[in-house]
Computed example of a mutant assay.
Amino acid sequence: MTRKKEQFSPSKTLKVSKDIRVRFNETDPLGIVWHGNYITYFEDGREAFGRHHGISYLDVKENGYTTPIVKSVCEHKLPLRYGEIATIETTFINTPAAKMIFQYIIFNEQKQVVCTGETIQVFLDNNDSLALNNPPFFQSWKNENGL
């Protein structure tokens, strides 16, 4: 009897899109978004993701952890201007390591890619010790979401 090779499907993709309106205080004298504000937009995306998927900063804190960012990457493609509505698409990248990886794409109103990026967060317990394995609550969250 010939045995069929087991097929593994890729992990489920979790993502969220959030619209924001560019505020005056986020722009430089030329009326375009100052480059440092894109990192804040990434945070807006992470917060929307966390609220939508049940893994917000408050959920993490309630379980005795914090998730500081240890790496951030931001690549600028086009400018955003005061008053424009942008869409932040935030995607969770699954990994077996005890960390959270998010990738971002920011689109302008014309659906053009304005900026792409990635952040990596690790887990620290209440003693600021690095978690080397997924905290139980995070592993449960991953299991519940088919990751």
Score class of each variant (00 low, 15 high):
residue 62 E to G: 05
residue 90 T to D: 04
residue 85 I to C: 02
residue 103 Q to F: 02
residue 32 I to F: 08
residue 52 H to V: 09
residue 111 K to H: 11
residue 137 F to T: 00
residue 86 A to P: 00
residue 97 A to L: 15
residue 15 K to T: 09
residue 146 G to V: 08
residue 138 F to L: 15
residue 130 L to M: 12
residue 102 F to T: 03
residue 129 S to L: 12
residue 145 N to H: 15
residue 33 V to D: 03
residue 58 L to T: 07
residue 2 T to S: 14
residue 15 K to E: 11
residue 69 I to A: 13
residue 44 D to K: 10
residue 111 K to R: 12
residue 15 K to V: 01
residue 92 F to G: 02
residue 67 T to Q: 10
residue 26 E to M: 14
residue 61 K to Y: 11
residue 145 N to K: 14
residue 56 S to T: 04
residue 132 L to K: 10
residue 42 F to T: 03
residue 73 V to C: 05
residue 97 A to P: 02
residue 59 D to M: 04
residue 90 T to C: 12
residue 10 P to Y: 00
residue 47 E to G: 04
residue 64 G to Q: 04
residue 21 R to I: 13
residue 117 G to M: 07
residue 72 S to Y: 05
residue 15 K to Q: 13
residue 118 E to P: 12
residue 138 F to S: 14
residue 141 W to E: 15
residue 17 S to A: 12
residue 33 V to F: 05
residue 41 Y to C: 14
residue 79 P to T: 06
residue 34 W to F: 15
residue 136 P to C: 03
residue 81 R to Y: 01
residue 140 S to P: 03
residue 106 I to R: 01
residue 60 V to K: 02
residue 146 G to Y: 02
residue 21 R to H: 04
residue 126 N to Y: 05
residue 113 V to S: 07
residue 39 I to G: 07
residue 20 I to E: 05
residue 28 D to W: 03
residue 95 T to V: 08
residue 76 H to S: 08
residue 84 E to K: 06
residue 119 T to K: 04
residue 131 A to V: 05
residue 87 T to L: 08
residue 135 P to Y: 05
residue 35 H to D: 11
residue 51 R to C: 02
residue 145 N to C: 13
residue 78 L to R: 11
residue 141 W to N: 15
residue 73 V to G: 08
residue 99 K to W: 03
residue 67 T to K: 09
residue 66 T to Y: 05
residue 24 F to P: 00
residue 55 I to S: 07
residue 121 Q to V: 00
residue 119 T to Q: 07
residue 30 L to V: 09
residue 37 N to G: 12
residue 6 E to A: 14
residue 90 T to I: 09
residue 52 H to F: 12
residue 145 N to I: 12
residue 132 L to N: 06
residue 71 K to H: 11
residue 67 T to C: 15
residue 47 E to N: 12
residue 38 Y to F: 14
residue 104 Y to Q: 06
residue 92 F to M: 13
residue 86 A to N: 03
residue 121 Q to R: 10
residue 10 P to Q: 00
residue 39 I to H: 01
residue 11 S to Q: 09
residue 39 I to E: 01
residue 95 T to E: 09
residue 2 T to H: 11
residue 31 G to R: 06
residue 20 I to T: 06
residue 36 G to L: 11
residue 120 I to H: 10
residue 118 E to S: 14
residue 81 R to A: 14
residue 88 I to M: 08
residue 114 V to P: 08
residue 111 K to Y: 02
residue 69 I to Y: 00
residue 142 K to L: 15
residue 46 R to N: 06
residue 107 F to Y: 15
residue 70 V to G: 10
residue 11 S to F: 08
residue 29 P to M: 08
residue 79 P to Q: 06
residue 121 Q to G: 04
residue 49 F to N: 11
residue 75 E to C: 11
residue 93 I to L: 13
residue 100 M to T: 01
residue 81 R to V: 01
residue 121 Q to D: 06
residue 126 N to S: 15
residue 86 A to S: 08
residue 131 A to L: 10
residue 120 I to C: 12
residue 81 R to D: 00
residue 20 I to K: 02
residue 12 K to G: 11
residue 141 W to M: 15
residue 18 K to R: 10
residue 23 R to Y: 01
residue 27 T to Q: 04
